[in-house]
Every structure is written in structure tokens, then in C-alpha cells.
Design a protein around this nucleic acid. Structure first.
Lengths: 214, 214
DNA sequence: CTTTGTGAAATTATTCACAGCA
DNA sequence: TGCTGTGAATAATTTCACAAAG
């Protein structure tokens, strides 16, 4: 039986895959848990335990085959599947996402754009649909992800609409907690919150050292 | 005295503060751990334990005074301090950050902008400086945070430059791990990684990130 | 020799459950 | 009564350390 992959492990697996893909290693090459750990800022033992969740990928005395690692990790994250997304909201964040070309590179694609008051003209090359078209588009285009880029006050309603339309996962940029059914995964990105947490640490929140790793 | 606040707790405290500030509660009003928990998707006992890290803020039988809570939490995050930031990189992400007005609202401010090849004209109202001006600007303007919005290949070098210039915290948007001294806190935002993790959950990886209340 | 994979220990975080106070 | 604060219990995660394998 395939054991559940713990969330912290899953996040790191994603980072390992990113590292493998960006460092121009040959597919035949081997990489050790120590190397991969150093490149990603993770302890070697942690790397091994994480990778063990995916399967028996390593070769004792040698390390992990880069090509195989890439393949297995890609499979874990369902790379290559259709991850068409509906973007709702064309304010600053929405437009930035439309202009961001990096998504497409890894299989994610903003396939349809919606807004409460859609402009007549195309926005960054995209036709912007009114919210009333959400359900139809979701069904016809098999959209699976919803991206919420509307003001906080409107976010919960949009989330409800996305869920009703049949979306199965949500990426939320609105700075508030959203209530969605527990079978709909949701990830939130709140830049102000992130900065705030950073400020906390800068201000002395994080202690560190007295225990330095030699 | 100030006992160390655990990282997970700190993240939630930030969310509690956001909730208190956005829900138009009166300063005199009281809010219970259950209410705050429901609004933020956190268990009531967890809310109490988190808030206990900050001090004895609650009133038995009543709850927490909204005004006091706001004040204490704001203090934890050093709200009101000068959090001027240097933004490096004016590609898609950099320009989106410049256009994003929400930072300023909470005390964060992009005070100077840098790029390897600065345009002659202002960008979104900002003069863009060459990298050579980083150290001087950081000192003269007392910049404390650095925001990295350059391509992955250039990110480590920029991080080194920011650290050398005297920045004390980094927000990184480049999709790679950055090596910085352990006394420099760093937060990374990688949207493709976030989407990938979302896709993993949608694909059936693990159920239930957010507790949704019936 | 090197490096994996993994029990076992240690550490960290969450939840329970209830005493104590308004 | 209603609600906080917190020990104690539980669960989750990381680290240690070493046997096994190339």
C-alpha cells in the first residue's frame, strides 16, 4: 500500500524536482542525498527519508540516478496532466499572472479569465468573461483549478462560485481565510503576510545559533 | 522572558491579526478563541495556545478584547517600524510588486528599485538604479529588506549583493534555493511550486488541508 | 570505502480535557 | 454559565546512528 506522503515531505519533493530540473545534470549522472540536500538546504537524512516515500530509488554506495529521480518525482506531481485554470480577477495580481510566462513552462495554463466587470477589449491577449460564464466554461474546457485574484471582500463569494462550477482546487491570492468544502484543496498566497513574518524574524524573532553546524 | 514563538504559531498569529484588522470589529468588543478560530480555520484550543505565547491577553468567561489583541499582535510584528525594502529586478514580478498597493497599507514600502540594466525612463513612477548603487542606497535610506525578483540564474548573486550591502531580510521570488548567512532570514515565494503542490492534492495526494466548518 | 534505507530516539506541534476565574 | 490557560496525552516530524549493499 502506498503510504500517504506527509505534507512537509511533499513540499520538499517539489523542491528536489525543481533542483534536478534546473541544474543541468545529465540523466545518467548520480546524485547523493548529501549533494541534493546541500543544493536545497535540507539535511541529507531528511532527503533520504523523503525520497523513500516515493519508492526505492537509490543505489547504495552510489546515490540516486538523476533521470530516474526526475521521472518518479514528475509522476508524483502528475506532471503532464492537464492543469487548465480559471483566473478570476484582472486587477494587479490577475494581470501579473497573465503576463507570467513561467506557469506554462511546467504544464499549468490559464485557460480562461473572468471578472465581475469584464472590459470590452482583450486584456493581455485574453478575452475576459463575465462571472456568469464560469460554469459553462469550466465544463466545456475541463478547467480544474481556480485562481482567485479579487479583493478580499469578494473572495469568499468567488470561491463558492468556483466550487459550484466544479473546480477541484483553488489558488487564493486574496488576503483572507476562505471556507471551502474539505475535498477542495486550497493554497493561499498572501504577500503582506509573508513580509510580516519576515519582519518578525528580522526584528529578532528567530534566535538561531549557539548551535551552529560546525 | 519573551519565550520563543514557534514558527507555525507565528504564521497563525499573523493570520489572526489580519482577521482582526479586516473584520470591522469595535475595539471594545470581545472575541472568543472559538470565534477567532472559526474565522481563520484554526481549532479554538490552538488559538488559545498561540495567543498565550504573546502574553496573558484573555479574560476568562469573556474572551479577548479586540483592541488589546490588535495592539499586542501589532507589537509582535513590529508594525509601525520602518520596513523600507529594496526591490531588485523589474521583470513581470518586479513590476507587479511596484503596482501592488497593498504593501504600503501595512507599513511596507518599496523605497528603491534596482536592475542590472536600468531603463532611462521611470518604471511605474520609480527611478530604477543600477546594481552598483545598491550599497550606497541601502545605507543612505536605511533599507532593511531586499526583494529578489530576478531570473533564477541571477538570484544567488543578487542575494550575495544584498547581504553585502547590509540588508537584514530577504523575500525571494526566484525559483531556487538561496544560500545566505543564517542570521539573514529569508522567505521564498515560488508560484509554480505552489501550483504543483496544489495539483498533487487535487490528484488525490492527501485530503484536507483546511478545515471547513459545516 | 561510500551511500542508502530505516528502526529508534528526540524533538516539535497539536489536541484533549479540565481547573479556575469572571 | 462561558471561556481562558495549561498540564498531560497524542500525533507528527526530524534527527541519529548503523546495518546492509554496491
Amino acid at each position: 500500500m502506498r503510504s500517504q506522503i506527509p505534507r512537509p515531505t511533499m513540499k520538499r519533493l517539489s523542491v528536489y524536482l525543481r533542483e534536478i530540473e534546473s541544474s543541468g545534470f545529465n540523466d545518467e549522472a548520480s546524485i547523493s542525498s548529501r549533494q541534493l540536500g546541500e543544493a536545497t538546504g535540507v539535511a541529507a537524512a531528511q532527503v533520504r527519508r523523503d525520497l523513500a516515500c516515493v519508492g526505492h530509488l537509490g543505489h547504495r554506495g552510489v546515490g540516486y540516478c538523476v533521470g530516474q529521480l526526475r521521472e518518479e518525482l514528475s509522476a508524483v506531481f502528475a506532471r503532464g496532466h492537464d492543469w487548465s485554470a480559471a483566473l478570476v480577477g484582472i486587477g494587479n495580481i490577475g494581470r501579473a499572472l497573465l503576463a507570467y510566462d513561467r506557469f506554462a513552462a511546467q504544464g499549468f495554463r490559464i485557460a480562461a479569465v473572468f471578472d465581475k466587470s469584464p472590459p470590452k477589449k482583450k486584456t493581455l491577449g485574453y478575452v475576459v468573461h463575465p462571472m456568469s460564464g464560469l460554469t459553462t466554461c469550466t465544463n466545456e474546457m475541463s478547467l480544474r483549478l481556480g485562481i482567485i485574484a479579487v479583493p478580499a471582500v469578494a473572495a469568499q463569494e468567488v470561491a463558492d462560485q468556483l466550487v459550484a462550477a466544479g473546480i477541484t482546487g483553488i489558488l487564493n491570492f486574496a488576503p483572507r481565510h476562505l471556507d471551502v468544502p474539505s475535498n477542495i484543496p486550497i493554497r493561499s498566497v498572501d504577500l503582506t503576510r509573508t513580509l510580516e513574518q519576515l519582519a518578525f524574524e528580522v526584528a529578532g524573532g528567530s534566535p538561531d545559533e549557539t548551535k551552529s553546524k560546525k
